[in-house]
């Protein structure tokens, strides 16, 4: 399965289509950090929200770049379960690389600052919270991108619709006072927790929520793949 992950990552990187989501992510982060300096936890919380649709789009591109017949050849070679897993894993690895860029980016452009007031979090704690916020986004974005992929939805139009609906829904349903926040991954709640009181129980609850949402959407992706044949 690792060989298939590597083959898919190589195919994704060699087409040049990997550049589009990366550039979009850099533009979004540049806009985010161009307005001033913030403390790491707060900045990274918002960065994770911004990256969610970018990573989902990146996942869709990675999965769509492989021709349908080649995907079937891989399935014949390694079996259904490992073919599906290899796609998700390759997308996860690509997403982690983009997250690494997003974590380093604000330090390069002077978008973050250390503690200012006595009660502020230290930089290591801020970094740890930022890393946690981004890691929560990865499975959710990979799940949404996979659900929007051609192998799952068929036509390109449906894929874009799923991606747009998921990206916008994650923000709108995550706003304070939302009637159905559980329908979206906890991106906004994570950003609020990073900026405010990040109690251990809150972090645990948000982690479970994000993983459960991702698992449900991956389940939908696998069901769609099964239905598509």
């Amino acid at each position: 399965m690792i060989a298939l992950v590597r083959l898919r990552l190589a195919g994704f990187l060699r087409t040049g289509r990997a550049l589009a989501p990366l550039l979009a992510g850099l533009v979004a982060l540049g806009t985010l950090y161009g307005g001033g300096r913030a403390q790491p936890a707060e900045a990274y919380g918002v960065s994770a929200v911004v990256l969610f649709p970018v990573l989902a789009w990146q996942t869709k591109i990675l999965l769509d770049v492989e021709p349908d017949v080649q995907r079937r050849l891989a399935q014949v070679s390694v079996g259904v379960a490992r073919e599906r897993s290899a796609g998700l894993l390759a997308a996860g690895v690509a997403a982690l690389a983009t997250v690494a860029v997003a974590l380093v980016f604000p330090w390069l452009v002077g978008g973050v600052t250390g503690p200012v007031d006595p009660g502020d979090r230290s930089v290591p704690v801020g970094l740890a919270l930022g890393l946690w916020a981004h890691l929560l986004v990865v499975p959710a974005a990979v799940a949404l991108g996979a659900l929007a992929s051609r192998a799952s939805v068929g036509g390109a139009g449906y894929g874009v619709a799923v991606l747009a609906l998921g990206g916008v829904g994650a923000v709108v349903l995550g706003l304070t006072g939302s009637v159905a926040p559980w329908l979206a991954p906890p991106l906004m709640a994570t950003a609020r927790a990073s900026a405010g009181d990040a109690a251990a129980l809150t972090l645990l609850g948000l982690s479970v929520w994000a993983l459960a949402w991702s698992a449900a959407v991956v389940g939908g992706y696998l069901w769609r793949r099964r239905a598509q044949g």
Partner: peptide
């Protein structure tokens, strides 16, 4: 199982050697 599809998916960014080596590893 070895499957030879009716139309080989040639629209892939690999050379022949890189592709076949990748498939052999898979």
């Amino acid at each position: 199982v070895g499957w030879v599809p009716e139309r080989f998916p040639a629209d892939q960014p690999f050379t022949v050697a890189r592709y076949l080596t990748g498939m052999a590893r898979v």
